[in-house]
Write a protein that binds this DNA or RNA. Sequence first.
DNA 1: CTGTTAGCGCCTTCAC
DNA 2: GTGAAGGCGCTAACAG
Lengths: 342, 342
Amino acid sequence: MAPKKPKQYLGVREIAKLAHVSPSTVSRVINYPERTSDSVRERVNRIIQEYHYVPNQMAKNLFSQSSNSLAIFIHDFTNPFYGLLIQELGQIAFKNQYNLLICSTLHNKNQEIEYLNYCQAVRTKGIISIDNHPSNMYEHLHDSIKLVSFDCKVDSIHYSSVTSNHYQGIELLLNHLIQLGHRKIAFATVNSPTMQAAKLRRQAYQQLIGWHHNLPYREDYCQKFEGGNRATHSGKAIIDYFMNLPDPPTAILCNNDPMAIGTLMYAQSVGIRVPEDLSIAGFDGLTENFSYPRLTTVLQDYKKIAQILFDDVVDPSRSSEVHHDIVDVALSIGETTGPVKK
Amino acid sequence: MAPKKPKQYLGVREIAKLAHVSPSTVSRVINYPERTSDSVRERVNRIIQEYHYVPNQMAKNLFSQSSNSLAIFIHDFTNPFYGLLIQELGQIAFKNQYNLLICSTLHNKNQEIEYLNYCQAVRTKGIISIDNHPSNMYEHLHDSIKLVSFDCKVDSIHYSSVTSNHYQGIELLLNHLIQLGHRKIAFATVNSPTMQAAKLRRQAYQQLIGWHHNLPYREDYCQKFEGGNRATHSGKAIIDYFMNLPDPPTAILCNNDPMAIGTLMYAQSVGIRVPEDLSIAGFDGLTENFSYPRLTTVLQDYKKIAQILFDDVVDPSRSSEVHHDIVDVALSIGETTGPVKK
DNA sequence: CTGTTAGCGCCTTCAC
DNA sequence: GTGAAGGCGCTAACAG
C-alpha cells in the first residue's frame, strides 16, 4: 500500500473497524502483543502502519494519571554549562521515556508561579530547578511532584539537592598554585546574591586560604565583579582592580570560566604575560571555553550530576527520601598557571 | 482557613461536593465566571483556593484535542546563540500559553524519529527545527503539525523556514574591511556538511569577494576547520594555516564568534598583534562572546527570529501558508579590525 | 484469545 | 443561573 498522509487523526475505533476487530484488541496488539493471535496481530499492525495510526498520548496520560514529564526550571539559558547539563538530562529522560518541559523563568517570580501551576496541572513527575533563587514558591507543591535543585539552596528538609564539590574544587586550585610557589592568590567572585555556587566557592576560598601554609586572608584579594551574561566582560575590571593594588597578587582565581577567559584576554591585551607575570584559573570546565593558552580550571562532572538529578526525581528507591549529594570535581591543569615570578 | 498541603489531586466532583454545586458549575466558575451568580462564584472560588484545586490539564487536553505545546528540535544545546533563541522562544510561548518541549537529538536519527512520533502522539501544534540536518523524516508528519526550521534546509515547498541574512552579514564585513584598506581577506569556515548557515556564509564570501573591487578569489584563502563544540579550539589551526601561506592574508573572517575568539586568543598568544598585524572578525553576535579587544562581528536579530518562528507555527494567518523569511543582520564594529598594515 | 463495558477528569450542549 | 448527560481516546477488568 502506498503510504498516505493522514488528513485527520484516527482513533482506536477507526483502526478496529478497518481491521474488523474490537478497539480493545487494537489496544492489546499495541500494549500486549503476546496476548494476541498471530493472524490478528499482523492484520492490525498492517492497518496501523498503512494509516499511520499514532495513539493519542493525551488519552493515555489521562488514563494513567501522569504525563511522564519532567520540568526544568532555569534562569539563564545561555550558560553553556547548563546547556550541557540539560542536554545530558534530555538524553537520560529520553532513554527512560520521559520528556522535558522547559520553564525558562528569567528571574520573573510570576512566571515561576505560573509555570509551577502548569506543572501541577499536567501532573509532572518532577521538577529540576537549576540555579534558582531560594523561594517559598514550593510550599504548595503537590506531594506527588518531586523537586530537586542543582546549585541552589531550597528547603533542605523537604527537597533533595545536588551540587558540585565547590570546596574541593577550590582546594585543588589552591594546592596547585601553592605548589607552584604562589602566596598571593586573589579570588574574583560575582555580585549575584542568588547564586549559591558562587557563594560556596567564595566561602571555600575564604576558609581555605588561611589553612594553607597559614596565608593571611586579605579583604582586598576577594572582590566581587559582574557575573552572569556579562561575566567575560568583567575581565577588564578584574585586571584593573587587582593589578593596581599596592601589593598585587601573583595569581587570580575566577569564580567561573567566562570570567577567567575575560581576565586572560584582557591581561594579554595590555601586555601582562600569562602565566609568566600572572597565573589565572577558572571554574566550570567546559570544552567550549577553550582558550590560548589553555585555561587551568575545575571540571564538574555534568554526566553524574544529571544522572543523580534524574534519579532523585524518578527513581522510587531514591526519590522516596531527601538526598543532598555533593559530586566530586577534578582539576584540569592548563597553561595559564605557572611558577610564581621571582 | 489554613492552607493545607494536598495529599491527592482533587477533581471537579470533589470541589463540587464541597461547594454544594454540580461539577458543571465548578467548570463554569473557572471558564465562564460571568455566567455564574456572585454568591456561587465566590463560594466555589473559596473552596478552590482552600484546597488548592488545580484542574487536570491532561483531561483538558484530551477534550480540546490539543496539548498547546511546541517542540524544539535541536542538536547542539551548548551553542549559546541557540540558547538565547530558545530562551526567547520560551518567553513568547509562555505569553501565548504554549509550552516548550525539548527534543535534543544529538544527530541521532532514531531519536529524532522517536521524538517526532511523540510529537504526533501529543498532538503538538508545531515543531521548530533548529540547525537540523536535511532529512525526509517529516514526510509522514500529520497535517495539523506545522514545521518551521531555522538555519537549515528542509523541503521548502511544504515547510517554512527562517534564516539570518548571512549574505548581507558577509557583505557588511567585507565592505568594512575593504574600507580599511584590506585586499587580502581570508575566510575560515567549518567542515560540518550539515550546517546550512555555514554553507551560506561560505558561498556569500566566495561570490562577494570577486565583486568587491574585483578581488581575486583564492582557494587558499577559504579553508575549512573544526567547528561545533570545538570551534574555539580551531584558533591555532587557523592561525597556523593562514599565517604560514606564502602570501598571508591581512584579515581573517571566521564563520562564527567562537572560532574568531579562538583565533584572536591564539594570535595574541604567539605575538601577533590584533588589529595592527591582523584583523579578525566573527559572526553571531552574542554578548557573552565578549573578548579583549572587542570582536568585530555580525549581530543576528534573535528576538525577531524567535517571533517569526513562533508565528509561522501558531499564528493561523501565517501558518496557513509556507514562508521563507530572511532576517536582517547588523554589523558590530569592535576593535579586532583596523587599517591594513602598510 | 477476543469483545463488551466502564471510567480516567473535564467540558459543553441541552433542558430546566 | 444551574444541573444532568454524554463524550474526548484509551485501557483494564471482566465475561465469554
